[in-house]
Simulated assay, not measured.
Amino acid sequence: MIIAEVVRSGFVESVHHGVVAVIGGTSLGDVDSPFFPRSSNKPLQTVGLLNAGLVPREEADLALISGSHDGERFHVERVRAMLAATGLGPEALRCPADLPLGETPRNAWLRGGGEAEPILMNCSGKHAGMLATCVINGWPLESYLEIDHPLQKALADAVSELADEPIAALGVDGCGAPIFGITPIGLARAFLRLVEAEPGTPERRVADAMREHPELVAGTGTEDTVLMNAVPGLLVKKGADGVAAAAMAGAGAVALKIADGATRARVPVLIEALRRIGLDVPAMPEVILGGGRPVGEVRAVFG
């Protein structure tokens, strides 16, 4: 199903297909076929870490564990502090070496002569949370990314329970950790459970930490951060390859996947879906440039 189109100089030059699962409104496309939610799974996995005994230094750490950080200084320093609190250092991380995800921190890092490091990788917060949970339980550290590790079994159980469906497929995410396949409607259902859970439960702790510290979920000026700051109570988490999920207690939830993985269509489609469940969401235009000036836009098309 076409859910977005690229318009340049008034001419529709291309379209993006995909699915939008909506709780509290009308879904578009096949929302019952499983896919890999990528980093949109992270908040669900953080619930699994808490269920497995994770004791964060402070609640704000849960936002970073659930996030895909831009690699700003405050992100990296917090990951380092999380590791140190468990007696570990950055060398314990099994995510690949990378540069900061955000353009501004990446350019600053390179100008300073920096090179790729695992702690800069956008998933290093999640990995630090995984390691902390292993330390608490006395589980092996070297193999924490293996699918048969007790940590990963606990995370799979949490994702399945929150989505209220079995894990449909297992894969390996970009950071090297297992990724669990569920349906778009299952992902939306899981996000709604996070925001509508009772205060103090693992689900609500994760949702509250992310909404109270959105800059730790993503970074300065990044879409997740901007949306959660603009709409109090909204929970948002993007994922790679054109994935996003969001929920608001009392309104509903959405989960989307752009079929070709295009990130440029993600925000327009997400905003339109949120407006369809009655939320007042600010415009965040996805502008097409020509010669350095705006000549078009990517816009949602909900048939």
Rank of each mutant, 00 (worst) to 15 (best):
R266P: 00
E165W: 10
A244V: 05
G252A: 13
A163V: 07
A158N: 06
A262N: 11
A209Q: 01
L235A: 11
V267F: 01
V236E: 00
V231S: 07
A190G: 05
E161K: 13
V195N: 02
G181N: 08
E215W: 14
I167N: 07
I182F: 10
V243I: 13
V226L: 07
L187S: 02
P268Y: 15
I185K: 09
V254A: 09
A230K: 15
E272Q: 15
E165G: 12
A253C: 12
A156S: 13
G242A: 09
I182W: 02
Q152P: 04
K237Q: 06
V243W: 09
E196V: 07
L270Q: 02
V254M: 12
A247S: 09
G261D: 04
D164N: 03
P199I: 04
K238N: 03
R189G: 10
H213M: 09
A168W: 08
A244P: 00
E198K: 13
G186Y: 01
D208E: 14
A218Y: 06
L192F: 09
A265S: 13
A262R: 08
I167W: 02
G221W: 00
L155G: 08
G181H: 04
A244E: 00
A154F: 00
L187W: 01
A245D: 07
I185S: 11
G171S: 08
L216H: 10
G242K: 14
A262F: 03
D224A: 12
L216W: 06
M248L: 12
G252Q: 14
V226K: 02
E215K: 11
L187T: 00
D164H: 05
E196G: 14
V254K: 04
A154N: 04
A253N: 05
R204N: 14
P166Q: 07
P202M: 06
A156T: 05
P214W: 10
E165I: 07
V226W: 01
M210H: 11
A259Q: 15
H213F: 15
V254P: 14
A245K: 02
D173N: 10
A259K: 15
A253I: 03
E272W: 11
P166V: 10
A169S: 15
D173L: 14
I258K: 11
V217G: 01
V226R: 03
A154P: 07
A262T: 10
L235M: 14
E165F: 13
P166M: 09
T201Y: 06
V231Y: 08
V226E: 08
R266T: 15
T263C: 00
G233F: 05
G221T: 02
A244L: 10
T220F: 05
P232I: 15
I167Y: 03
M228W: 05
T183H: 05
A255N: 14
V172Q: 12
G233W: 03
P150C: 09
A209M: 02
A158T: 03
R193K: 12
E165Q: 10
A246L: 00
L235R: 08
L234M: 08
A207N: 05
A265V: 13
R211V: 05
A240M: 05
V254S: 12
P184L: 08
V267M: 03
A251D: 13
E215C: 11
